[in-house]
Design a protein around this nucleic acid. Structure first.
Lengths: 107, 107
DNA sequence: ACAACCTATGCCGATAACGGAATATGTCAA
DNA sequence: TTGACATATTCCGTTATCGGCATAGGTTGT
């Protein structure tokens, strides 16, 4: 059995490097599909398919205007992933403090 | 072409729900393989395979002692993912502020 | 209505991923 | 050495995923 569908799990949607590129691009402002394809050197159908996945998990939003579709990142969904990783924050700060202390003992 | 191998991309390794469970369990303290399997109700070979993936991308570390292998989460690698999501932080805080402002205007 | 345009979807072949069962590797104790 | 124990790997069948190409939908302008 393969993993949970990309269309239902934000973590899985993020797993694809191309989709992370798209999210980064669309973070600051909305982009039409064709421009995304040009900017990231991808085929238009490929971009549309990735956007479809990102849309299904709520990582992007669309605004349709005539025959164009403007996509933009929905940061709140990325916050969900950020929050999950934050649960480990106490451990890596502890680790960083130990590394720092060791460095100071060494000099 | 499928996506980048789980063994080379931390984001991809994290995409599997079972592996996230393992990481959460191993965050506070190290665990031997058999205990992980019992705790999470998974088969031992399955756990070993997931740990292998997590080890390859550096998300866990091992300490071998006799015939046991104690695994623990390596928080620094999770920090890498955390850092990527942080690039979007300015956008979701902005979004939260707008929601808050709208709520206050409404009451 | 027709053509140009932008975007979405369907089909294809190749590939990686998963779980489960069996088995291999390695370690300890008698 | 032999057997019990802990973990790792291999094999197998099933399924999701990706890119590329062709094409379908929907919109605008003539």
């Amino acid at each position: 059995m393969p993993r949970a569908a990309t269309t239902s799990d934000p973590f899985n949607a993020i797993a694809e490097p191309r989709r992370r590129e798209i999210l980064t691009l669309l973070a600051a402002e909305e982009w039409p599909v064709a421009d995304i394809a040009t900017e990231l050197a991808m085929g238009q159908p490929s971009v549309s398919k990735h956007l479809r996945v990102l849309l299904d998990v709520g990582l992007v939003e669309v605004r349709r205007e005539g025959r164009q579709a403007f996509y933009r990142t929905n940061p709140m969904q990325i916050k969900a992933i950020h929050d999950w990783t934050s649960r480990f924050e106490q451990y890596w700060t502890g680790q960083l403090l130990r590394i720092k202390a060791r460095a100071e003992r060494a000099r």
